[in-house]
Simulated scan of single mutants.
Amino acid sequence: MNADRLALLLWLAASAASAQGFAGLGTEAEGFAIPSPEAALTFPADHGPHPDFRIEWWYLTANLSDANGTDYGIQWTLFRSALAPFEADGWDSPQIWLGNAGLTTPEAHFAAERLARGGIGQAGVTTAPFEAWIDDWHMTSTAPSGDPLDSLSLAANGEGFAYDLTLQATRPLVPQGIDGYSVKSPEGQASYYYSQPFYEIEGTLSLPSGPVEVTGQGWLDREYSSQPLSETQDGWDWISLHLDGGEKLMGFRLRDREGAPFTSATWIAADGTPTPYPNGALTMTPLETTDVNGAPIPTQWQIDLPAQSLSLRLDALNPNSWMDLTFPYWEGPVTISGSHTGKGYLEMTGYTAP
């Protein structure tokens, strides 16, 4: 076994043993670039990879429905994780790529993953033209002009499922945090983070029962950093919500084994104007749990953002939406009731069986 393959296996073993996974997001970032609040996001360049940062992802979720009103959810994610802060050709590349895909119905949940080494063409991201891929999974720009993320085609497949979708943005990109600088802890760990939460989607899901034509709404998150969590944070609860009035909400709760959780939120008006909220403005309270894969997972939540008169209850479309992959976690669509109605997505990491 050559040294590169051995390094890949060692990285996977170390990451799988960590509750945080994905290269130990709370560990020291020596040698890697660190986000700065003074730096500005630049498009379309920042749609591409940043090999001097340790961890990065292109992450899309969609709430979909068929002609009969049945709800579905899909997820497509490409992760880049670096063993060293540079890029190189062939097996000399220290960049690791991991793809996750999921499809959720009210009765079933499907998940698949792909793994690749950078530098050999099996996975990567280009900016001109924009394409993110791993094996035959792809997120490809179809925009004739303007921002490359304005129009996309998206495809993935796994055992028992596949999807092929087209996405069209109706509003501009949205920075998260302060102009894209998203703080994650009281100690100041942070990431660069922006979203496209205004996709209209149509396409086809392939299920064991046959093809299903769907339409709906999508949300793309772009985030990169080198140490986005503090050492004592061991998981997160993250939401992206499409409200029926046209507004959007991004929020997260980072759980800390030594203290109170750290929260952040961005209220996005129907015209795309963001209002960021600091730690403590948003509260996320678990209401009910479901035993999923031997672990108690919160699958019903109370979400409160008093500054926007927001008081919501989230209910999982399918409580058993467990991504049983190299780094296991829960992720699936939710329905919204309370002061506002709508649909969204919930992702929860760091929950393991007692």
Results as ranks from 00 to 15, higher is better:
residue 41 L to M: 15
residue 128 A to Q: 14
residue 190 A to V: 07
residue 130 F to S: 05
residue 159 E to W: 01
residue 199 Y to L: 05
residue 187 E to N: 05
residue 16 A to D: 02
residue 320 N to L: 11
residue 250 M to V: 06
residue 210 G to M: 09
residue 202 E to T: 14
residue 322 W to T: 10
residue 153 S to D: 06
residue 217 Q to H: 15
residue 283 T to W: 01
residue 20 Q to D: 12
residue 213 E to T: 15
residue 41 L to E: 14
residue 178 I to V: 12
residue 317 L to K: 03
residue 178 I to M: 01
residue 167 L to D: 00
residue 229 L to A: 14
residue 44 P to E: 15
residue 329 Y to E: 07
residue 153 S to C: 00
residue 317 L to N: 07
residue 161 F to C: 02
residue 199 Y to K: 10
residue 202 E to L: 05
residue 279 N to A: 10
residue 313 R to Y: 03
residue 276 P to H: 10
residue 226 S to C: 11
residue 119 G to N: 02
residue 282 L to H: 03
residue 97 W to Y: 15
residue 290 T to W: 02
residue 205 L to C: 13
residue 235 G to N: 12
residue 324 D to L: 07
residue 129 P to I: 13
residue 177 G to S: 06
residue 223 E to A: 11
residue 76 W to F: 10
residue 1 M to L: 05
residue 51 P to D: 10
residue 123 A to W: 01
residue 148 P to H: 03
residue 15 S to E: 01
residue 295 A to G: 09
residue 269 A to V: 00
residue 128 A to C: 02
residue 213 E to G: 13
residue 76 W to D: 04
residue 91 W to C: 00
residue 46 D to Y: 12
residue 188 G to F: 01
residue 88 A to E: 05
residue 32 F to W: 15
residue 179 D to W: 00
residue 172 P to R: 06
residue 17 A to I: 05
residue 8 L to C: 04
residue 163 Y to E: 05
residue 229 L to Y: 15
residue 200 E to A: 15
residue 6 L to S: 09
residue 227 Q to P: 10
residue 117 R to Q: 12
residue 233 Q to H: 14
residue 9 L to E: 05
residue 260 A to H: 04
residue 322 W to R: 10
residue 139 M to H: 02
residue 69 G to K: 01
residue 6 L to Y: 03
residue 135 D to G: 12
residue 224 Y to W: 15
residue 307 A to H: 04
residue 50 H to D: 09
residue 184 K to H: 07
residue 205 L to M: 07
residue 310 L to G: 08
residue 211 P to Y: 06
residue 195 S to L: 07
residue 58 W to L: 10
residue 300 Q to N: 06
residue 141 S to A: 08
residue 315 D to E: 13
residue 192 Y to Q: 10
residue 348 M to I: 14
residue 326 T to Q: 12
residue 106 P to S: 05
residue 132 A to K: 04
residue 30 E to V: 12
residue 116 A to M: 03
residue 48 G to Y: 13
residue 235 G to F: 13
residue 250 M to D: 02
residue 294 G to A: 08
residue 140 T to R: 15
residue 333 P to N: 09
